[in-house]
Amino acid sequence: MLRVKKAVMDYRIPLLALSIFVIMSLTNEYFFKPVNLTGLFESISAYGIVAIGFTFVLLCGQLDISMGSVMALTACVFMMTLPTIGFIPAMLISLVLGCVCGVITGFFVATFRLPPFIVSMTMQLAYKGIALTITGSTPVSNMHPTLLAISEVMLGPIPITFFLFLLVALVAYYVLTQTQYGRNLYVIGGNINVADNLGLHVRGHLWSVFIVQGFCAALGGIVMMTRMFSASGNLALDGPLNIIPMVIVGGTAFSGGKGGAIQTLWGVVLMNIIYNAMSMFSLQANMQEMVKGLILLLIIVADKYMENRSYKV
């Protein structure tokens, strides 16, 4: 009996995700329809990839909320260059751009030691601003044949981009559990003094995770284009709102040193199922945003409260 209890506790996120999925499928007639399921998987893919990047940042005990704007900027660049230079080059440019964004953000945090929250807040607005400038504040739409073709490759209701997400998650899992670099992130996030005493290059590691997030944000933005076919500076404005709960609920904490790629994967699946279920209950779009905001708030407050409750101030 005790072993069952432990198993349930350890696997609570996947179990919760599957339970809600099953319940919704049985009780709601629109949920299990291919149209809805495809949308669900597409959402999981796009946000999931970005969430994996964010996981790297949190593991080190850092924070970066600019992922939404990086998605927007890279997606805009992608869509703008797509007609002229073709799919692969456009994708490469966007991915590199994502890394560059990460380099800049990481520079201010790792080298200048400025508080990550202010830097990423500023960069979020800066990247969004750049995106709006280069697109002239109008969305860039393009039903490019390659994009269309990709969006049609499916396994039943599951789009191929979902498998891309799985691939990214697996690569991340490998890096985080099987490489020295990945394990170093856990040490840095877990106890930075130990990291210093071991002679790990803390600054370099910190810088790198921002670059990883930038890359993932760019990749996620491109994936989103296979669904939306249109990019603007205001894309993924609610990026942090969606992604932070996915990662925290999955089991990676703000304090760092805990969590991982597979945990995030399940967190992404669970939260997207919840968001999808919410939309089934014909809640007004704004009410949904409000509920999402409250969920985020609850998660943040619960996490911080548990951390600090033994102190009086």
Partner: peptide, 8 residues
């Protein structure tokens, strides 16, 4: 103050 990472 032991030099270990408790989560690992």
């Amino acid at each position: 103050e032991l030099n270990l990472v408790s989560g690992l």
